[in-house]
Computed example of a mutant assay.
Amino acid sequence: MSDLVASRRAAPLLIAAAGFILLISSHAHAQWWKRAPVDFEECADAAEKSTTKAEKTAALADCNAKFAGRRKPGGGYTYYDFLQDRTFDIAGPNPTPEEQKKIDESYTAYLADQRRSNEAAQAMARQQREQQEQQAQQLQQVVLRSEVERVPVPVERPKVQQTVGARPKGACTKGSFSCEWPRLSEGLNEIKKLFSPTPSKPAKKS
């Protein structure tokens, strides 16, 4: 009986002690959650302690969304802008409004440079295309000129004499009978004149 009474008296004390312990534990747990990570690296370290792979992946994605900067070995932070493919030095784990303004201005200048580079590349490509077309035309002209020079020029046929069998005066083949006969005929006529007496003229009547 006395043991039962003693246990009943001790029960409230045990309950109070247990409550006190739970209170301290919950308070410590609350203090741990109250201290949020200050940058990406600290947040990533906490994410690594996740129990499952899915929780770890979700926690790292949350860290990446909260903190844009990354720690530099010598102190400070750096921000990588994938649109410009370059990094910027920033003071904290996230860019300040002034730092973000400079990043945006740099991106505007980057777009202008890209536009000018594209226009210059297009102009150069257009010039090269025109040069290639001009060279192709010149080559075609050379080939056509060479083909024309290789074609033989037709020789003009000699004109045919209109009179068949007629021979132009003074034109004969040397040594042929037709060419020698006129001279022989003239020589015979001269010989005949030498041996033929000249007929006398009749005397005039008084």
Rank of each mutant, 00 (worst) to 15 (best):
L139D: 14
H27P: 00
A47D: 02
A18G: 12
P73H: 09
E42T: 03
R116S: 02
N64Q: 13
Y107H: 14
Q140E: 15
D85R: 12
S200I: 06
I21L: 15
E180Q: 08
S7L: 14
K174D: 04
Y80H: 12
S2A: 10
L83H: 14
Q162W: 09
S196C: 13
A123S: 10
E180T: 07
K49H: 11
D81H: 13
A166K: 14
A17Q: 13
L4A: 10
G165S: 09
C172D: 01
E48I: 10
M124Q: 12
N64C: 09
A109V: 01
K102R: 14
V160G: 01
G175V: 01
A47W: 02
K205L: 07
A46H: 09
A123E: 12
Y79S: 05
A47E: 00
G74W: 12
L144R: 13
R145I: 04
A136K: 14
P152W: 08
R71S: 01
N94S: 06
L14C: 09
T87D: 05
R86M: 05
S146G: 07
R86Q: 06
T198F: 12
N118K: 13
V153M: 07
L83T: 10
K205E: 01
F20A: 13
I15A: 15
E105P: 00
A58L: 04
K192W: 09
Q31Y: 10
R157K: 15
P154S: 09
H27D: 06
G69S: 08
R183I: 01
T96F: 03
S200Y: 04
T57W: 11
A65E: 05
A61G: 08
T96L: 05
I90T: 00
V164A: 11
S106T: 04
A136S: 05
R129A: 10
N94K: 02
E119R: 15
L22K: 14
S7I: 06
A18V: 02
G187R: 14
N189R: 15
Q134S: 04
I90F: 00
R150W: 06
